[in-house]
């Protein structure tokens, strides 16, 4: 399917091809165990990941676009369980759901840094690619894993979102 799309839009250029290929070749969210003990230890996390993936595939589309945030609650849940494990991930997800009520302003609300480390863009599971869709987002994400990263600085980089410059005064005039 991806190839068909590719041929449909030859003008779209290399960027589309690369993000599509990146996504197609990305590893899954599941955590691989190296021993029998680990299989048991990681079972809750992997079960939650599986459940969230099923929810996202079957139930989410029924409601359409609902969430007031980016990433959506289910994407946030899947990322937080993938990165932070069953207990912390679940806690983060529940807190996020409580934030996603009709009177909330919404907006960009990312999973906090920390947890599982990923070395390169190619190592990022699919949900991380989806939740960090631009090259700048991915660079910021990877730099947060670097051992030298100071937690505060990473957070500041996050605040100063790469999207800001696009909302130039010219655009507000048009509104």
């Amino acid at each position: 399917m991806s190839h068909a799309l590719h041929e449909d839009h030859p003008a779209a250029g290399a960027e589309q091809g690369s993000s599509q290929e990146l996504f197609d070749e990305a590893p899954s969210e599941f955590v691989h165990a190296s021993s029998a003990f680990q299989v048991l230890w990681l079972l809750p996390q992997n079960l939650l990941i599986a459940g969230l993936k099923v929810y996202r595939a079957l139930i989410s589309p029924l409601y359409g676009d609902v969430c007031k945030h980016f990433p959506t609650c289910s994407a946030y849940g899947l990322e937080s369980v993938t990165r932070h494990g069953a207990v912390r991930g679940l806690g983060l997800t529940v807190r996020r759901l409580l934030r996603c009520h009709p009177w909330a302003a919404g907006g960009i609300d990312r999973v906090p840094d920390g947890g599982r480390r990923f070395e390169s863009v190619a190592d990022l599971p699919r949900i991380l690619l989806l939740n960090h869709p631009t090259p700048e987002d991915r660079a910021r994400l990877l730099s947060s894993f670097a051992p030298t990263a100071i937690p505060g600085s990473a957070r500041d980089a996050h605040r100063e979102s790469p999207l800001k410059p696009r909302s130039s005064p010219g655009m507000t005039d048009a509104a």
Binding site: S2, L5, D8, H9, A12, E15, Q16, S19, Q20, L22, F23, F70, P71, I108, L129, L130, N131, P133, T134, D137, L163
Partner: peptide
């Protein structure tokens, strides 16, 4: 740009 990652960038 119809691939999922680009769509997410747009959603963002």
């Amino acid at each position: 740009k119809t691939d999922q990652v680009s769509r997410q960038a747009m959603a963002q």
